[in-house]
């Protein structure tokens, strides 16, 4: 593991701020064409989760990296839906994402403490990283749910995201964006920038799938806007990922001939 270019605090700040701003603009404005902003916020939250997974899993947790990503979304789904429901119950829809985030941080800290104090896994960064991962989980779920529903209203999200079953791809792909980057890049030559660029491209794939789901739920033009933006983000970051893989390969690489020269 090399020295990180971005510190954990910087990544967390960006993840939480961009995540919440994106969700709020998309949720409160009520303009369907701005729904993609919630997806962009969720991509930054995905990156925050992927960096926390990278730090905690470099200790070797013994169960494989995927377990921690599923834990993130398991805690995240409970906190996210509770936050949105509280907003609806008190007729203050705008408090939803904040309540969900705060609750997720609490659950993450409690589960992290249980892992270290009761189960005695003894990983020094466990509490902090599980807190961040739970926060990332709630922002990813809220972000993509708001993007698909085009609203922060709990009743609308239940009708358009949960009852329709679109929550399933959001759940699994959101978890993949958090767990897959480190799972794919781990090893002695893992570098932070490569892992994080990979997390952007995973998040963009989730956003594109969310865009496809929103064709039926909000507006075809808004959906196409989301899909095109997500595809652009994916293309830029995936090409960046390929470049970083070639950089980290060091001594050199030989194309296998699957793609014509110059395609990459």
């Amino acid at each position: 593991m090399s020295e990180p270019a971005e510190t954990a605090n910087q990544i967390d700040t960006k993840g939480v701020v961009v995540g919440l701003v994106g969700i709020y603009i998309a949720g409160i404005s009520g303009i369907p064409y701005l729904a993609f902003l919630a997806g962009i916020g969720a991509i930054f939250a995905t990156k925050m989760g992927a960096d926390a997974v990278r730090r905690v899993c470099s200790y070797g947790i013994g169960t494989g990296v995927p377990s921690i990503g599923m834990l993130a979304l398991g805690m995240g789904v409970i906190a996210a839906m509770f936050g949105l429901a509280i907003g609806k119950m008190y007729n203050a829809v705008f408090i939803g994402p904040i309540v969900g985030l705060v609750l997720a941080l609490v659950i993450g800290f409690v589960v992290g403490s249980l892992t270290n104090k009761v189960i005695k896994l003894n990983i020094p960064v466990m509490e902090r990283c599980l807190t961040e991962i739970a926060g990332a989980g709630v922002l990813v779920l809220t972000g993509f749910s708001v993007m698909v529903a085009g609203s922060m209203d709990f009743a609308v999200i239940v009708e358009k995201v949960i009852t329709t079953g679109y929550i399933a791809p959001i759940f699994i792909l959101g978890a993949l964006g958090i767990l897959h980057p480190f799972n794919a890049n781990l090893g002695p030559d893992e570098t932070q920038d490569r892992t994080l660029v990979h997390s952007y491209s995973c998040g963009a794939i989730t956003m594109a799938i969310g865009g496809v789901c929103s064709i039926a739920t909000i507006d075809p033009i808004a959906a196409i806007l989301s899909i095109v933006i997500a595809a652009a983000i994916w293309y830029v970051n995936f090409m960046g990922f390929v470049r970083l893989v070639q950089r980290d390969a060091g001594a050199g690489y030989v194309g296998t001939g699957l793609l014509p020269p110059g395609a990459m």
């Binding site: 013994g62 494989g64 789904v77 839906m81 589960v111 239940v158």
Partner: peptide, 27 residues
């Protein structure tokens, strides 16, 4: 009384309770 909310919540509770023991047995 809502099957969709209940099932997604049951999955969330299930995952939390499946991952914590998996740390206990170290995989």
């Amino acid at each position: 009384g809502d099957p969709a909310i209940s099932s997604i919540f049951a999955i969330g509770v299930f995952l939390v309770n499946a991952v914590l023991p998996s740390y206990n047995i170290q995989g």
